[in-house]
Design a binder for these strands. Structure first.
Lengths: 339, 339
DNA sequence: CGCGTTTTGACTAACGTACCTCATTTTACC
DNA sequence: GGTAAAATGAGGTACGTTAGTCAAAACGCG
């Protein structure tokens, strides 16, 4: 049988109340008494029963997720995963509200954060837009002891409790090394297609990609990024034009969405250079299997949703959470290791 | 406020006892009554409070992990991860016993499974060795409603509740495709180093590797596997000999452990062909960063430990567990996407 | 030493569910 | 219609913790 606070009280020679006071930092307890209680806990190997504690606290944990709205398929996917996983957590007394905000709108995020009433929420996960207002709002939440987790896009580390997402520079580097190796010693130019370089994550991937090519594959020259604004038609048109004008394209890196256009453009030509894209979708999975692209790099939105939620739960329960467990990786998929 | 069984009873117009009977399938309840209760549950969106239920059941969940003993570093790693994660679960009333058995010993596994006393254990995770005795023992456990999860190595699917591990044929295919691409059109032979082809997982990886080379990279010819028995000295000696005898080795695939010997052998030569190995360790991570090898393929033992434990917990609580959540992937690491 | 202040103890109700007993009602069947 | 059997109700206790109240004890300080 696991020891309970009753056992701790008995061994420490104090009352239940005192154990409770030590455990929950209530009234003042003399240092000597606290020591005795803590020693007893250690010697018994006491671990607070999380189920009983939460039950007694009659506490349901309410978390707020602030995600950018709009058509961005990655974000919609992430939203769906958050909702899916939170349904599983209902049995453990967790309630999740997902609110979508105008994308890239610091003021809207700022307002949403400021509007959080004390006592109505036990933790926040947000896709950060870095601005002084947002930083101030997050700081206020932290001062209220509300755990804040950043998702996908980070803030300064001292403001948030945990960041769930990938390092996009390293994602770009990974793409660069993969494509560099796939090009196998040929010389030529690499076409780069992005959603928009205004997006921080796209810009970071682009940077990492170029770093690696410059340092490790000097025979490959990345071209200026085409901005396709995640639109298949634009992507197809501009890429087709580029391929017609440029004879020595020996590889293609697609940083964002709009890959349908990329594939159509390539389909109409005979042969194709190595292609590396981001995000695993039904489409990109099919293209990988069909041999229309060579590798997909992704961050798993399902794991990100779960990590964010688990982190919030752990922080709210005052549990140490395993950082490693809640880290998401930069995954590489070829047609053989698809999930 | 979330609805409780009291609410369900009120709405259904029955007593608490009856709701309890329906919920836990105790005495006989008339179909009509059961219907009313179930309708009430649905209309209220009732979800059983897992914390309260387990508390009341004064139930601690006891799980048994049966892992192969011996020096196999992957298994030792896995064992450590199981212990680490189970420490986190203590607060939720989970107790884990890890028992190591002689490796590849079906009889020992069989005995260990048969020795499980009813009532002393709520679920088993094992690294399966397929034999009639083991299958029978697992079937008996299943008949006792004890959830059984296979780890790393599977049994026939109908016997176990879940398998946590990777498909090694696909892992080998992944290695093959990666190495094939890295070799970039050159012609020659590929050296293959395994622990022992008696190991099923090594044999499967070898098979997948060859499949891909044959189908997609006909210019690359895999050589017969060197068996190094996970021993660095043997690996170094045999690989050195092989490289001296064979001029056209254009790639190396290491299926198992003993990579220290591989790296030493390569270190003593000028230049090296592309190298793909399995398992991410402090060593292989260092070699990747130092450019001594090109890619590492792994299954994450930490995630496998967590998945097995979470699956057992979910099954014991009668919860639907998310299959996807508890699946582990075949991960590819280059020096840029290391965790 | 006596005072006021801290610290501690004893006790109680509650959280939502499980599980038990005993009594009562309803049903099925002849 | 009467009987046994089945179904249901009522009520209690317990799980381990939280969170309170009130009284008693110990302490610090002049």
């Amino acid at each position: 049988m696991r020891p309970t606070i009753h056992d701790v009280a008995r061994v420490a020679g104090v009352s239940l109340s005192t154990v409770d006071r030590v455990l929950n930092g209530r009234h003042s307890v003399r240092a000597a008494t606290r020591d005795r209680v803590e020693t007893a806990m250690r010697s018994l190997g006491y671990v607070r029963n999380a189920a009983a504690a939460n039950l007694s606290r009659r506490r349901i944990l309410r978390f707020l997720f602030l995600l950018p709205g709009g058509a961005n398929s990655f974000m919609r996917n992430l939203e769906a995963e958050v909702l899916t996983y939170s349904r599983l957590l209902v049995a453990d007394g967790v309630e999740v509200e997902v609110r979508t905000l105008p994308p890239f709108d610091a003021a809207a995020l700022d307002d949403a954060l400021a509007a959080i009433e004390p006592g109505t929420c036990d933790g926040v996960a947000l896709v950060a837009v870095d601005s002084p207002g947002v930083r101030a709002a997050v700081r206020r939440l932290r001062d209220r002891n509300l755990p804040v987790v950043t998702l996908i896009s980070d803030l300064t580390p001292e403001l948030r409790a945990h960041f769930v997402g990938i390092n996009n520079v390293r994602a770009g580097r990974t793409a660069g090394r993969l494509l560099g190796r796939f090009c196998g010693g040929t010389t030529g130019r690499i076409a780069v297609m992005a959603g928009s370089m205004v997006l921080q994550d796209h810009a970071e991937r682009d940077r990492g990609f170029r770093e690696v090519l410059r340092a490790n594959f000097p025979a490959l020259t990345p071209m200026d990024p085409i901005e396709a604004f995640d639109d298949a038609a634009i992507a197809e048109r501009t890429l087709t034009a580029l391929l017609e004008q440029t004879a020595d394209v020996v590889g293609i890196y697609s940083i964002g969405a709009g890959n349908r256009g990329l594939v159509s453009a390539l389909d109409r030509r005979g042969g194709r250079p190595p292609v590396v894209v981001h995000e695993l979708t039904e489409n990109s999975r099919g293209w990988l299997l069909a041999g229309k692209i060579d590798a997909v790099i992704r961050q798993d939105p399902a794991r990100e949703a779960r990590s964010a939620l688990r982190t919030l739960v752990a922080l709210s329960n005052g549990k140490a959470f395993h950082k490693d467990e809640n880290r998401v990786g930069i995954e590489i998929f070829l047609q053989d290791n698809l999930p």
